[in-house]
Amino acid sequence: MSMLQVGTKAPDFTLPDQSGKPVSLGDFLGEKVVVLYFYPKDNTRGCTTEACTFRDSYESFTDAGAEVIGVSSDSVATHEQFAGAHGLPFVLLADTDKAVRKQYGATSLGGVMPGRVTFVIDREGVIRHAFSSQMNIGGHIEDALKVVKQLQ
């Protein structure tokens, strides 16, 4: 499946967070803009840099009315360790069967490898921004924050 495009309704989903609690996209709709970012793997250099950059900008996102949610295929236990080790204040979701990743088309390299993709979803559940880049980690955060501020 190709990556979901701007203007598309974001599919709802429910996945366990780093404490095992089920979290749904619908939990935030109507109240917050959601910055949903898919990343390849906990505890790797690029993904740690990305998560820590979101952490360092987290207050800017929440001040602008957004919630940041990270998704990878790692387990709840791995997410719990990763979030604790780096002081991540946002939710990490365990998409262990990669179903949500596939639903959003958040893959790269011919649809085989896990992609680094960020979506900004407005309060009505519509995708307002989609950014895909394995290497431009800072671009995910900068672009997402610009869009969130425009949606205020």
Rank of each mutant, 00 (worst) to 15 (best):
G111N: 11
T8N: 14
K21C: 01
A66H: 01
G65H: 01
V100C: 10
F61H: 08
C52T: 13
G26S: 15
S19K: 10
G26V: 02
K41D: 05
F90Q: 04
A144G: 11
P114R: 02
D27Q: 04
T49C: 02
D12Q: 09
A130R: 12
S133M: 05
I121W: 08
S75K: 12
R116V: 05
A66W: 00
I127G: 03
A66F: 05
S132M: 14
S24W: 05
K21V: 01
S108I: 08
F131P: 06
I69D: 05
R55M: 09
C52A: 05
G111H: 07
S2N: 10
Q18P: 04
V6I: 14
K32N: 15
T96A: 14
G84Q: 04
D17H: 03
S73M: 09
H140I: 06
D12W: 04
F90M: 09
Y37V: 12
S57Q: 07
S57T: 10
T118Q: 02
S72L: 03
Y104T: 11
S108V: 01
V117F: 03
K149R: 14
V34L: 10
C52K: 10
A64G: 12
I127D: 01
F90L: 07
D143E: 11
A10G: 09
D122P: 12
E59S: 15
G105Y: 06
Q134L: 08
Y104K: 06
C47G: 00
Q134W: 01
S24V: 09
P89F: 06
E80N: 15
V6P: 07
C47L: 00
E67N: 15
N43D: 15
E50L: 13
K9D: 06
D122C: 13
E50V: 02
E142T: 15
L145S: 15
A130C: 11
T44A: 13
S57N: 13
L145F: 14
D12M: 11
D143M: 13
Q152T: 12
L29T: 02
Y58S: 15
K98N: 11
I137W: 00
T49W: 00
F82Q: 04
V33F: 02
K21I: 00
H140P: 11
F61G: 09
L92K: 04
I121G: 08
I137P: 01
R116A: 00
P89G: 09
N136D: 10
V71E: 02
A66D: 03
K32S: 13
F61Q: 03
T8V: 12
D97P: 13
L4R: 14
V126R: 07
F90P: 03
D122I: 12
H140K: 10
V120T: 10
S2A: 02
R45G: 06
L15H: 07
M135G: 06
E50H: 05
V120L: 10
L109A: 14
H79E: 07
K102T: 13
A130S: 15
S19N: 15
Q134R: 07
V112A: 08
K21Q: 03
K149D: 04
K149Y: 01
D143G: 15
A85F: 00
V33H: 05
R123I: 10
C47I: 00
T14V: 14
L145Y: 14
G65P: 08
N43P: 04
T44R: 11
L36S: 03
